[in-house]
Design a binder for these strands. Sequence first.
RNA 1: GCGAGGGUGGCAGAGCUGGUCAAAUGCGCAGGACUUAAGAUCCUGUCUCUUAGUGAGUUCGAGGGUUCGAAUCCCUUCCCUCGCACCA
Length: 862
Amino acid sequence: MEIKNIESKWQKKWEESKLFEVEKNEKPKFYVLEMFPYPSGSGLHVGHAFNYTIGDTIARFKLMNGFNVLHPMGYDSFGLPAENAAIKEGTHPDKYTQKSIKNFILQQKRLGLTFDWSRMVITSTPEFYKWDQWIFCEMYKKGLAYRKKSPINWCPKCNTVLANEQVQNGKCWRHEDTSVEIKHLTQWYFKTTQYAEELNNQEKIQEWPELVKKLQKNWIGKSYGSEVVFKINDEDWKVFTTRPDTLMGVTFLVISAQHTRLMDLVTKENKDKVEKFVQKLTSVSEEEIDQLEKEGIFTGSYAVHPITGEQVPVFAGNFVLADYGCGMVMAVPAHDQRDFEFAKKYNIPMKVVITANGKQNIEEPKMAYTDAGVLVNSGKFDGLDNIKAKEEITKELEKINKGNKTVNFKLRDWLISRQRYWGTPIPIIYCERCGEVLDENLPITLPMDVKFGEGNPLTTSESFVNVKCPKCNSDAKRETDTMDTFVNSSWYNLRYADANNSNEIFDKDKVNYWNPIDLYIGGKEHACMHLIYVRFYTKFLRDLGLLNFDEPAIKMFNQGMIQGADGNKMSKSKGNTVDVTEIIDRCGSDALRMYLVSVAGPESDFNWNDRGLDSIAKFLNKVQDYFEKVKVGNSQAKKDHKVHSTLKDVTVLIEKMRFNLAIIKLRELFDYFGEEESKENLEIFVKMLSPFCPHLAEEFWEKLGNKEFVSNASWPKVIESKINSEFDFEDKYVASIKSDIESVKNLVKIEKITSLKLIIAHKWKYDLYSMLKESLAEVSNPAEIIPRIMNSELKQYGQEIMKIVPKIVKTKTVPDFVSRDKEENILKQLNLDCKVEIIFAEDSQEAKAKNAMPGKPSILIK
RNA sequence: GCGAGGGUGGCAGAGCUGGUCAAAUGCGCAGGACUUAAGAUCCUGUCUCUUAGUGAGUUCGAGGGUUCGAAUCCCUUCCCUCGCACCA
């Protein structure tokens, strides 16, 4: 049967049997999840196929190992591309999205995945986003969803604001060529910082990739320091510092030029200059700011040093971030490189307060001294080690009520407002009388009567915008911002547990039965976006009492990237993309799946290679041919050995997700099979094949006379007693004799050998043998004797011994196979079509004389 | 600049809890078998020298070190990839 027909045959059978539709049962559960896709119009790419194949291989393996496996799929279908594509094609984003999803499902089904389609979620349906809105309401009530005005990142191409996480190198995450602008707007935020401390704690995500954990740590950026109060114009202003030990060296303060209260500090005389300065800054893009020199301008105000009472000038600066710490820093030019440069530029004095040895330096410093040292010029703190001084100075500040110890995070609250149509509407109404009112009549559905074009399309829908206040029934306007699409993907993993529940977000028992995810598979590019948000949501929903776990996934796995054959990132413009459907049409999805996991380890990047795919396709062809012809016969000890030792390896390798190595083992085993094999061994082989090429495996399984699915069969048990490494030796021995005969034949240039003499040394002894005899007595692996030798006076012979030991060990093994009473066995194994005479050399002299070595018989040809 | 990961044979990619490693496997290449021929399939070879089998030498970015012994451990250095880039 043609591969295409085989595949559709089994896909149909699986679907009809509802094999992969699961419910809670008494088996241990295993929840494997691949990050759901954004259903783009161009359909599945190989990266998707790779992603699902990895998950599916594990899902199938776990299923066969007796787990109740949940493996769902859904679509992250809100988002800008759909809106833009719809505008371009003149359709509605909803139509466009539905079409794309249909296409995706079709393509995914052809991969033969174990998805439980009954649990599909689509985020752009009101059935789903109703619960996004519900969560928003809960957050709002708890003060975790709030509105504030602040400088934000604006992408002029997306025509919307972006979260900090969505700004990469000053560019929009969707538009590599578009610089992000800074605007001041009132926007909705989720208070992710509420969980900063817990997000920073990685105790319960130990099985996540180190890389992801590092990136998150970095992003969350916890740092310990102190808050110090400076009095400016009779008002207290706080400053955050990680170096309170340098407090006595402060010679000026710098407030962020973006600071909302900057103008409060600016004196009349300086107003014009400062305003000009600020204006200049906002007109440049963030990217340019990166390269900008440290610049500032005097505000006209002076701050009072909390300890010395000295007056230091306050500057506004372009290098101070408005929303980190307090938006204002104390500058210690002698001990901070930025401050140093700034002070040099504006001729501000410096004050050295730390030196390496605690003595005053006379020389003018050429750069800031940032290393550890001892305090000088610091009054009563002089002579203190700077680490100790951090504590002492902070204590002093606490005593005089001018500061305290504190912790700061780089993590900011998550800006979720988007000025676009195709997202979850925010359930808020602005009433003239009541102000901001939460609208809990969910779902608040997206209106269809909108015009796309300039600005936010939602504002064009009268029916949507103009509403009555739910509180007082007077005229009100609806919020027209929608939520960032990362909101939807922050909890979809939970909805799978109870995807069709219309009464509540999910059933508590169900969600806690399936979750947390046992294995979550996706790209590492989500480390600081989706993977932080989903952790945040998990914690929030836990605190609502809905979840009894703290982290979304126990284990996270990042698959590699597939580049084009030319080594570049796949892209249409480069013309190096691979069409999944076309590949499946040509080679079948089994070949595609197996190829994807056979090239390299699933975590490493690799280049697509058609030849590699062909090689797998050829292999599967051969296997298919083989199952057409194979005769089912009796078992042989040697084959059993091979099958079970392969099984043992493959089981471990799949468990460790070393699929490429497992496939090599399978290929080796297949090469080993002959015209006749025992049913049992063939079945084990088919079962091992099943996670990698499920369709063909089912076909073979059926051919072997089985009525049930192999997909649902139990993974074979390794029978240790069948594993006997002597068979491996036997094979090597026979193979080497055969190859020796070949080469001798070639050199002697004899076409047809009529008779052959093999002189076999089966009791060959080396001189060292007697010395080592005792050590070797019960050892079969050379590595095992090393420790013993290293403890004896033989140590100096280490290298020599290591050369000989394997041979000696071999001689211990040789007699079992190569001995007089096995003569017939040897002949049978050699299977030569000429007369073969075997002569045994009993002792070393005789063997030596005849040039025979253990494991290498002397060959005489006639 | 900081942080992470990596550099293995013509290529891809194993090996990296030190010893049976001249290094799995696949691709490529060469030779052979089969075939009218091609494809497919099968066999053999594929670092260098040498021997019939065998042995010897030089290899795992470069240079040192530890060790009886290193692709594997340590140090230095070069190169590549990817993250963060003014976080006070």
